[in-house]
Structures are given as C-alpha cells and as structure tokens.
Computed example of a mutant assay.
Amino acid sequence: MTTKTAVLALLAMWGVGSPACLPALAAEAAAGTDGSIEAALPGLTDRVWSRIDDGGLPGVMKVFLSDGTLIEDSCWETHRLSPWRIVSETTVSWNEDGIDIDAEIVSLTDAELVLSLQLVGGTVEERYQPAAVPFVCPDIPKG
C-alpha cells in the first residue's frame, strides 16, 4: 500500500470525506418540534457568546451552531469543534475529549447566557454575553 493510499484510507475512516454526517446527526438529535434547533432554544444558536466571568483570561467564547456543531475558542488555547445536542428544554450537552458535558441553561436572553456546567469536580456557572464586534485578542505575555 502506498503512503497516499494509506492516508486516503485513514481520512475515509475518520469521516473526513463526508463532513456533513456528524452535524446532520447532531442537528437531528437536537431539533425542536418543528425540526429546528432554533425553535427549541430561540436565541442560543448562531451567535458568538463571549464569557463575562473569564477570570482575567480574555476571549473565551462559545458558538452553538444550528447544525449541531459547538465552536469553543479563547485567546490562549486552540479552538475546539464538538457535536452538541439538546437534552431537555433547559439542558444542552457536548463532548470534550470523550467526556460528556451537561450544561443547564440557567438564563437565556438577548443580552446574556448563563450556563451551569455539571463537571466531575462539581457544578460551575459560566456567564456569557453576545461578543463585541470587532474584537482582537490582546497580546498575552509569554512566560
């Protein structure tokens, strides 16, 4: 087997050739009664939510896409793409490194999103607001 053939086989196995599979399945699992995520949790999706209580670490953000993809990013870490889904009327879930994270939506308005994350070490509350545009990460001193 050539190197090129081996790489193509791995990509096919990982699903790289069919990127729509995972989001479509996640969207189906999370859909509201009319078939859309937006109908189930209006105001949550397709917005950049910037963390308010960031502990001095700027640029923490989450984007719940209506196709079932969660984008997580910050100014100091590499971005993460994860599937997410609606568990109940007030709970969403996503997977990070093989661990399911359940988050209760404590509050969801046009001005704020408050999540209560059920983590191994206990419950953690995170507060978000719609991200300011434009935004550029500040220079972070290298240690």
Score class of each variant (00 low, 15 high):
2 T>F: 06
2 T>D: 08
3 T>H: 12
4 K>H: 07
5 T>C: 01
6 A>K: 04
6 A>I: 05
7 V>L: 15
7 V>D: 11
7 V>A: 14
8 L>Y: 07
11 L>R: 13
11 L>T: 05
13 M>S: 09
13 M>P: 00
14 W>K: 14
15 G>T: 02
15 G>K: 02
16 V>D: 14
17 G>N: 10
18 S>N: 08
19 P>H: 06
19 P>G: 04
20 A>C: 10
23 P>N: 04
24 A>R: 13
26 A>N: 04
26 A>D: 00
29 A>Q: 03
29 A>R: 01
30 A>F: 07
32 G>Y: 02
34 D>I: 03
35 G>D: 06
36 S>H: 00
37 I>E: 05
38 E>L: 07
41 L>C: 01
41 L>D: 00
41 L>T: 08
42 P>E: 04
42 P>C: 03
43 G>N: 07
43 G>S: 04
48 V>E: 13
48 V>C: 11
50 S>M: 13
52 I>M: 01
52 I>G: 00
55 G>E: 05
55 G>D: 04
55 G>F: 06
56 G>W: 08
57 L>V: 14
59 G>S: 15
59 G>Y: 13
59 G>A: 15
61 M>F: 11
63 V>N: 10
63 V>F: 07
65 L>N: 11
66 S>L: 12
66 S>V: 10
67 D>A: 07
70 L>S: 01
70 L>C: 00
71 I>H: 14
72 E>C: 04
73 D>W: 07
73 D>E: 08
73 D>R: 09
76 W>A: 15
76 W>P: 07
77 E>W: 12
77 E>L: 12
79 H>Y: 13
80 R>K: 08
81 L>V: 05
81 L>D: 12
84 W>M: 01
86 I>Y: 01
86 I>A: 07
86 I>N: 03
87 V>L: 09
87 V>D: 05
90 T>C: 04
91 T>V: 03
91 T>E: 02
93 S>I: 02
93 S>L: 04
95 N>Q: 09
99 I>S: 12
100 D>C: 05
101 I>L: 11
101 I>R: 12
101 I>N: 09
102 D>N: 11
104 E>R: 00
105 I>V: 02
106 V>E: 13
107 S>D: 15
109 T>R: 00
109 T>Y: 00
111 A>F: 06
112 E>Y: 07
113 L>G: 05
114 V>E: 10
117 L>I: 14
118 Q>R: 12
119 L>N: 13
119 L>Q: 15
120 V>L: 07
120 V>R: 04
121 G>E: 15
121 G>W: 09
122 G>H: 14
123 T>I: 14
123 T>Q: 15
124 V>I: 15
124 V>C: 13
127 R>H: 11
127 R>C: 06
127 R>I: 08
130 P>W: 02
130 P>Y: 03
130 P>R: 03
131 A>M: 14
132 A>R: 06
133 V>R: 13
133 V>S: 13
135 F>P: 01
138 P>K: 01
139 D>C: 00
139 D>M: 00
140 I>D: 01
140 I>K: 03
140 I>L: 02
141 P>C: 02
141 P>M: 03
